[in-house]
């Protein structure tokens, strides 16, 4: 630190801390307000859990939550299986940069573009919209993240065990199930967790591909935020923040997440 100051970098600390204040004050305020007794969501009136109580009685939110969980579980399973296989295949066989690009494309493509693409596609093949159409859409980008995380793990993996297994006469399937998968397990689990949080929080694509009668939780939140603010949203927001934080920290502990994504 002393050396930093001597090099004239001390002033860098201001934007550094400003970034973290900027990132955490807004969500901190929402969390604080969720415990606010006051009916007005904008002024403090003492500690209370009443909005959490009301939240659990809200029919629309419960429906949205169930829809979201169905989609998220389905999309997570599908994108984990497809993404893991894809990552192994790409690491082993692929030399084409085009295929590499295709596998990471859903992560870079703006969500709105993917959303309208799928909307057009579903209309063109005359598929009715429902939870399945959201599930497919979420698998498209969930898979990209699983592939990226598992691949990052593969790059550090030691291949000598797989070679030994093959030399000892194991079939490719046996080698894959008994050696490759267990080695990759932390990466796969981390990828699955990311796909799950992404799906739970995803709004734009769901907005375009869900049936109006079966909204996911973010769609319910959107209509709530749009047509007036209720303190229940603060409570819901706090719960969702808690879920995302837990999942992401868990994923981080399992693999070097930040490394895979940067």
């Amino acid at each position: 630190m002393r050396r930093n100051r001597k090099q004239g970098n001390g002033w860098l600390r201001l934007p550094f801390w400003l970034t973290y204040v900027f990132l955490y004050v807004p969500i901190g305020v929402v969390v604080l307000m969720s415990f606010n007794r006051n009916k007005s969501p904008y002024a403090w009136g003492g500690f209370s859990l009443r909005w959490y109580g009301q939240l659990f009685g809200n029919e629309k939110i419960r429906e949205g939550l169930i829809n979201t969980l169905i989609v998220a579980f389905g999309a997570t399973v599908l994108s984990t299986v497809l993404g893991t296989l894809l990552a192994v295949g790409l690491a082993r066989y692929n030399k084409s940069r085009l295929l590499d690009a295709l596998s990471t494309m859903p992560a870079i493509l703006p969500d709105l573009v993917l959303a309208i693409g799928l909307l057009i596609f579903y209309a063109a093949v005359k598929m009715t919209l429902g939870l399945h159409s959201v599930l497919i859409a979420h698998t498209v980008f969930g898979m990209a993240f699983v592939t990226a995380v598992v691949r990052a793990r593969l790059n550090h993996a030691d291949t000598s065990m797989e070679e030994a297994s093959r030399d000892l006469g194991a079939t490719p399937v046996t080698t894959f199930m008994r050696i490759t998968l267990p080695t990759l397990a932390p990466g796969i689990l981390a990828g699955a967790l990311l796909a799950f949080t992404l799906s739970i929080d995803e709004f734009v694509i769901a907005f375009f591909t869900a049936a109006p009668t079966q909204p996911t939780l973010p769609i319910v939140i959107y209509s709530m935020v749009r047509f007036g603010v209720t303190p229940e949203i603060n409570a819901l927001a706090t719960l969702l923040l808690a879920v995302s934080f837990t999942v992401v920290i868990a994923a981080q502990r399992m693999t070097k997440l930040t490394e895979a994504l940067s």
């Binding site: 990132l23 305020v29 929080d201 939140i221 969702l240 995302s244």
Partner: peptide
């Protein structure tokens, strides 16, 4: 420090936008 940067990004985007309504509203913080 890196995890602290990434964390908000993985939370619900609508919630993060909503937080600014709470902050900037005429009765807000």
């Amino acid at each position: 420090a890196l995890v602290a940067v990434v964390l908000p990004f993985w939370t619900n985007f609508l919630i993060r936008t909503y937080a600014w309504i709470v902050l900037l509203n005429s009765e807000g913080l």
